[in-house]
Structure formats: structure tokens, C-alpha cells
Computed example of a mutant assay.
Amino acid sequence: MLVFYSPALVVALVSLAVSGAVEGARERILCAAFAAHLLKRVLEVLFVHRYSGSMPLGTALLISSGYLFLLAMIYVQRLTRGLPEPAVDLLYPGVLVFAVGNTGNFYHHLLLSRLRAGGGDKEYKIPRGGLFELVASPHYLFEIVTFFGFAMISQTVFALVVAVDSAVFLAGRSSATRKWYVSKFEEFPARVKALVPYVW
């Protein structure tokens, strides 16, 4: 995953560093949010994630393509230069939503990594703590929140489509994750939903 995240991080950082590459608060904040998210991803791969097995190449490519869409958001944002600002400005609420999503995602990744604190432990366990008490995949829930934060910062149709697409993809993964837990653990709590606490 490091190979997939790093180029996108470099592009986001270069976009911020090169004079004139990004203009205006919305473009700069969107680009900075991408850089922060991708830097978090790279650091998680290096220091947090403990994998129980390999990921199929198709899945890895599908996930990484989402990050190409993030970079495309920067380009689409650039195309909006000179257009009137939206009537309702969601830039700063979007920054808050992004921060909540990124922080929640990181926290739940830490909880997952602690399941294999010994390093060599490959045994599967039911995650505990945080929103794992209510949903099987809170890290996916917060990833979705992060993508909607990007969409609010950007306020383009393209960014909204990327957020909805990510939500649909991660909802499917969450559902599959819950089904897997139910099949592997008789004691898996029935109250734990797939993605949205108390709902689904």
C-alpha cells in the first residue's frame, strides 16, 4: 500500500509547494487536507498496520484508484477558478468533518493494530473499544466521513460523486466484514451493526 499512497502524497505536497499550482483558500485547504490524509496513510503503513495476510492485487488497485480520484479533485478544483463561490460555503465545516473523519479513522486503525501487538500473532480476534462496540468497521465509517469532508471543502459535483462512490464501496466491505465475524465467532454480538451504529 505504501507504493500506492506515496506518489499521491508527493503530488499533493508538490502542488502545495509549487507557486501558482493551487490558488485561493479552497484549493489550498483541499490540497492540504489530501496531503494530511495521505501522510497519515503512509505513516500508518510504516508504523501502525499489522497485516494478517496479503491483499489481493485487484482489491489493492481498486483502493488505490480512490486516491487517484483525490488527485483528480485537485484538478477539478482548479477548473472552478473564476466561477462564483457556492451560495452556502461549506469550506470550514468541511475542514471540521475531515478532521473528525481522519482522527476517528486513525484511532480505530490503532485499535486494530493492538489486536496483533506481538507482531507475529496471526490469530483473528473481535476488535474492542471505540465504535467497535457498535459497528464492525468503524474505520470505514470514519473513512467515509473523511471523504465527505473532502466533498464539503471542494463543493464540486465530482468530489461528491467520489465521496458517494467511496461510501458505497466501504459499505459493501463493512457488510462483508460483519458477515465474516458472524461466521467465525459464535460470540460475535448481535448488537454490532456493519457500519452505522444502531441502524445498519
Rank of each mutant, 00 (worst) to 15 (best):
V42C: 11
V22F: 07
A12T: 03
F188P: 02
M1D: 00
L30M: 12
R28V: 15
R26L: 11
P56Y: 04
L71R: 12
S183I: 14
L68C: 13
P127E: 02
F185R: 07
Q155I: 09
Q77V: 03
R26N: 04
W180G: 00
K184R: 15
S52T: 09
V164S: 01
W180T: 05
M1V: 12
V162D: 00
K125G: 07
G66V: 11
F142M: 06
L170H: 02
L111R: 05
D89M: 11
C31G: 01
P138V: 11
A176D: 10
Y92I: 06
L170V: 11
V182K: 10
M73D: 06
V10F: 13
A35Y: 08
Q77R: 05
H108W: 05
V100Y: 10
E27P: 05
F47I: 02
R81W: 09
V97D: 00
M152R: 04
K179Q: 12
P93N: 08
A33V: 10
S64H: 10
A99S: 14
A163P: 08
S19A: 14
A194C: 13
V95R: 08
L71C: 14
E44T: 05
I29R: 04
P189H: 01
L62H: 12
D121T: 15
Y67I: 07
G101W: 02
Y5M: 01
G58E: 01
F185I: 02
L112S: 01
L62C: 13
A60I: 15
L57Y: 10
S52Y: 03
S52C: 05
V3F: 08
V76M: 11
F69K: 04
K40V: 13
D121L: 12
L96V: 15
M1I: 13
T59C: 06
L195I: 11
H37N: 12
L83V: 05
V196Q: 09
P86I: 08
Y107V: 15
V18M: 12
A87Y: 10
V48P: 00
I126E: 00
E143I: 09
E143W: 02
R50V: 10
L2T: 15
L68A: 13
P56T: 03
S65V: 07
A12Y: 03
A99D: 04
A176E: 12
L112M: 13
P197D: 04
S19D: 14
S174A: 13
G20C: 04
A117K: 15
I126F: 11
V45K: 07
I74L: 15
L57Q: 05
V42Y: 09
G94Y: 07
A163V: 14
H37S: 10
S6W: 13
F132C: 05
K122R: 13
Y67V: 02
A17S: 15
A117G: 06
W180H: 08
R191M: 10
F148C: 06
S154M: 07
T156D: 00
V3H: 04
F132P: 00
L38W: 03
A32G: 02
R191K: 15
Y67E: 01
S15K: 09
K193W: 13
T59N: 08
K193R: 15
V14W: 07
L70E: 05
G66K: 06
A190L: 14
A151M: 05
R116P: 00
I153G: 01
L141Y: 03
S65Q: 06
G120N: 12
R116G: 01
Y75Q: 10
R178L: 05
H108Q: 01
F142N: 00
V14C: 14
P56S: 04
P56Q: 03
L195V: 10
S183G: 08
